[in-house]
């Protein structure tokens, strides 16, 4: 049942201009970055910085706006013999899959052409994971908020926090606590931000400790590449599952 609805949601979104524009933007930016530096690694690092900002932002804003625009239709579907959980999961999967399709074409294609390495594929994989994480977070914000303005506002705040503020706060906390053993603390702070986890996952593939920042360098030091990656993947999986489950929990009890 869910698959049937997902197909229509994906089809509807892919026929719209927004996802097309997103794909085009990613494609142009990725090709540009790979051609500018000449070196594939430099291109990947540039693409990583871009993806870590743009993917969460687009996923958050697009998903919340989609939810509110589809409000009347979701209401109509909720009046059909359908479980609420099926309905919401179908919407979330539909949006996430449409955005994932844009990523596969927009950065997947350039990566295959210019950097078909483990690092390149890791970058593509974490971009897909971030799409799912932030789509789920956006739907959680949307089902919790009472109106469109609050929902989109909350989504933008989430982006601002995870993309910009969290790193600053982490650094500040580590600076304040510099006299204490910090490994556990910094690992904990890192785990609280899916964007940081994604960044570390990609950078652990490269040998560029200078670019990893404090937490990244510490993570490599602490866990070693293998365990570090496994840890980051498990925590990222949690970042997908928890918002998803919470959004479904709230939506099942929500008055439409």
């Amino acid at each position: 049942m869910m698959v049937r609805i997902v197909r229509y949601v994906v089809g509807d979104i892919l026929r719209g201009r927004i996802v097309l524009g997103y794909t085009g933007f990613l494609l142009v930016a990725a090709l540009g970055l790979f051609n500018l530096g000449g070196d594939a690694t430099k291109g990947l690092i540039g693409l990583l910085s871009l993806v870590l900002l743009v993917v969460p932002l687009v996923s958050l804003v697009f998903s919340t706006v989609h939810f509110y625009n589809a409000h009347e239709f979701i209401e109509l579907l909720a009046a059909q013999p359908l479980r609420r959980s099926t309905l919401l999961l179908a919407q979330i999967c539909g949006v996430a899959l449409a955005l994932a399709a844009a990523l596969l074409l927009g950065i997947g294609l350039p990566i295959l052409l210019y950097a078909p390495t483990a690092t390149g594929l890791t970058l593509l994989a974490v971009s897909l994971v971030l799409t799912f994480v932030f789509t789920a977070l956006a739907f959680l914000a949307a089902v919790l908020a009472r109106d469109k303005a609050r929902g989109v506002g909350a989504a933008l705040l989430l982006w601002f926090y995870f993309a910009l503020l969290h790193d600053g706060l982490t650094l500040y906390a580590l600076f304040l606590l510099e006299d204490f053993p910090l490994e556990g603390v910094s690992l904990g702070l890192l785990s609280l931000n899916p964007i940081d986890l994604a960044r570390v996952l990609v950078l652990l593939q490269m040998d560029v400790s200078a670019l990893m920042g404090y937490t990244g360098a510490m993570m490599k030091d602490l866990l070693g590449t293998g365990t570090g990656m496994a840890y980051a993947m498990v925590v990222l999986a949690g970042w997908m599952a928890v918002p998803l489950a919470s959004a479904v929990w709230v939506f099942r009890r929500k008055d439409l």
């Binding site: 089809g11 589809a70 009347e72 209401e75 109509l76 009046a79 013999p81 609420r84």
Partner: peptide
């Protein structure tokens, strides 16, 4: 929810996915 197969609903405002 299964019992809603016996109910038909015409909402006040019909809005469907745009594309």
């Amino acid at each position: 929810p299964g019992l809603r197969s016996r109910i038909g609903y015409m909402p006040q405002i019909g809005r469907f996915p745009e594309h």
